[in-house]
Design a protein around this nucleic acid. Structure first.
Lengths: 110, 110
DNA sequence: TCCATATATCGATAAATCCAGAATTGTCAG
DNA sequence: CTGACAATTCTGGATTTATCGATATATGGA
């Protein structure tokens, strides 16, 4: 992942509504959630939510699956992984003890 | 970590200069880098950089160590870990295969 | 084709953010 | 105390972003 993509992903997540959307989709798993349901669940008007979903999609954090008229949004964890890798690049080289907490946090639950 | 803190951290990283600062400090390791050197290395005027460092500090992503007149900034990976944990909350419950890529990304290098 | 539903785009306004010049605080040396 | 240096705070202006009403596109059914 390049700098521009990482920046887009972080800026996308650094906004109240979009952060909630991403977490909602992470919890929802592989099935995803229809766009309209995302809007109603988070109490946001439809067109505003559509704009936010576009930002998340463009940032590579979600992907879409169309089924008829309904568009389901699904969290894209590979995009999220790439972001993580970018942020932690050369972390261990500099000082292994510094990134230790991060490893433990991710590995404990799974 | 609560929503407000996560949002602050993501918004802090979702900006060109601050993202570069964080990555610089991650690479620098536990010694950290003086504020002035951060500014000169990234080609930013000092007062602007000071404002960015304040944002990162307030977001819990860096911490400071004063030695005389010089203030060294160090990446705070525990703050970063908390952010990660918040983002991946209940990820595995919903669908274990979804967060698999993230685990692999973090564990491979260390 | 005509209508209803689901989602996306357009346009305008209000709010938040970035940036750099100027001034300020804090620390060390003489 | 004075001068030099490191860093922060203050302030104004320019840019960006969020939000929402209105409109547009797209799909499915009668």
């Amino acid at each position: 992942m390049d700098k521009k993509s990482a920046l887009a992903a972080l800026a996308a997540l650094g906004q109240d509504t979009r952060l909630e959307v991403f977490r909602l989709l992470v919890r929802a798993g592989a099935e995803g959630v229809p766009a309209g349901e995302i809007a109603s669940r988070l109490g946001t008007v439809q067109n505003t939510m559509s704009a936010h979903l576009k930002v998340l999609d463009h940032a590579g954090l979600v992907r879409t699956e169309r089924a008829g008229r309904v568009v389901r949004y699904v969290a894209d964890m590979t995009g999220f992984r790439d972001l993580l890798a970018y942020l932690m690049e050369d972390c261990c080289n500099g000082s292994p003890e510094l990134c230790q907490p991060v490893i433990q946090a991710v590995t404990c639950n799974c």
